[in-house]
Computed example of a mutant assay.
Amino acid sequence: MSKSMRWSEKWFRRGLWLVAFVFAWFLVGLGGTIVGDLPQVEQRQTLDDFLDPQRAPALKQTIEAAQRAGREAQDALDQARLRLQTAQANNRAARETFSNWLATRHATERPEQDEELIQRTRDLDAYRKAEREALTAVEAQEQAALDASQTQQRAQDQLHEMEEAARETYLSAQRAQELRVFLYRLALTLPLLVAAGWLFAKKRHGTYWPFVWGFIFFAVFAFFVELVPYLPSYGGYVRYVVGIVLTVVGGRYAIRALQRYLERQQQAEALPDSQRRHELDYDLALKRLSKGVCPGCERAVDMKDPQNDFCPHCGMGLHNRCASCHSRKNAFARYCHGCGTPAELATK
């Protein structure tokens, strides 16, 4: 910021820059919301959309039914195993009791106990039969669980094969959808960037420059921050190609801008000194002088040397003397700092 600028003007300009940033912030928020909602214009597709509309639902129903049958078989199997354990325990206890009683029977050899022997044998056969029935129930539930598991696995294998066959088509459609959404975003942000470039070239020094700069900040942010992350990759080729194109375009613009600048400088340096100083902006000239460069050619000049009244590079006058008080003064100053005489009346 130029040292010649008034103190209140400096703070006004800072306030206007704050207005520009606040305006840009609200625009960025609005733009981010719009860009984020753009994918909703496309119906979101999933892999299921590319499967056989008749076979896929049937296989999924088969898998669900097999899972349900498997859970039911497992629950029944747990109950059957519990009953088997009970039957086995009853059978073991009955055989132990029978063995003890039979040992007593051999010791006493009482014929009247033959009828009880027959009854105990029958009871033991009943316990053995109950154990066998419980074991049969366990085996049946294990078979039912195995059948359900195999049915589920076969259906899942078929569904997996169907999904693999449809995956390439799904990925191609997904890439096409991402590209369309990106083009929607590009169609929204690219005109903003073009408008920002025009405003930068034509209106950045106008009366309403805070809104111009706020819009420029917003457009640059929307294009390079909100758009670039959505750029389709395609293995990285698109990003690198876009980066190369942007670099070439930007570099070409910078090179041509530098060439035009050098041409303008050469043409300006060929003009008379009075005309060059008349066309040079007052604040810009003071700003360059404060940085130790010539206001005309922008080359370094030792401003502290009292002998440097003219630029040794382009010949532009840097200092002169007041005709009223003979003080050495800045050639661009509007008034003499020694006596206050207007510069256009007091130079020689």
Rank of each mutant, 00 (worst) to 15 (best):
F182H: 07
V242F: 06
M316S: 11
I244Q: 07
H337K: 06
C339K: 14
V238A: 09
T207K: 11
L84A: 12
R92Q: 14
G315P: 07
K348F: 07
G315D: 07
N320M: 00
L171T: 07
A134L: 05
K304V: 10
A140Y: 06
E72I: 05
K329Q: 13
Y170R: 05
E344M: 12
R92P: 00
A333M: 01
N308T: 15
K10N: 04
F224H: 07
Y170V: 02
R128E: 09
T247C: 00
Q141W: 02
M303C: 03
R256C: 03
A165H: 06
L179I: 13
Q45L: 04
K329M: 14
S274D: 05
G251L: 09
F217I: 15
Q40S: 09
Q54M: 00
S4H: 00
P312S: 12
W101Y: 12
Q40E: 04
M5F: 10
P210C: 05
G206W: 04
R68P: 00
L258K: 13
Y170P: 02
A331C: 06
L262R: 15
L231W: 04
L192P: 02
S274V: 01
Y234D: 00
L271N: 00
D147M: 14
Q158H: 09
S2F: 00
A331P: 01
A107V: 01
V212K: 04
Q150G: 04
F21A: 07
D309W: 14
E279T: 02
P272C: 10
A268Q: 08
L18E: 03
W11L: 15
R175Q: 13
A66D: 01
A80Y: 13
H313F: 12
D52L: 14
A69G: 02
V245Q: 07
K329C: 03
R260H: 03
F23E: 11
L102T: 07
T136Q: 05
A107P: 02
L146M: 10
V242W: 09
L193Q: 05
D281N: 06
S4R: 04
V301Q: 05
Q113A: 06
T62N: 06
A165R: 14
A300F: 09
A300K: 14
A346S: 12
A145I: 04
Y184L: 01
Q141K: 10
T247K: 04
R68N: 08
Y208C: 00
D123G: 04
Q113Y: 06
F211H: 05
F217G: 11
H278L: 13
V181T: 14
G315W: 09
T151W: 07
I63P: 02
A73G: 10
E161A: 15
E226M: 13
Q61M: 08
L171Q: 12
G340W: 14
F211P: 02
V242E: 04
Q174S: 11
R277S: 08
V228Q: 08
L84G: 08
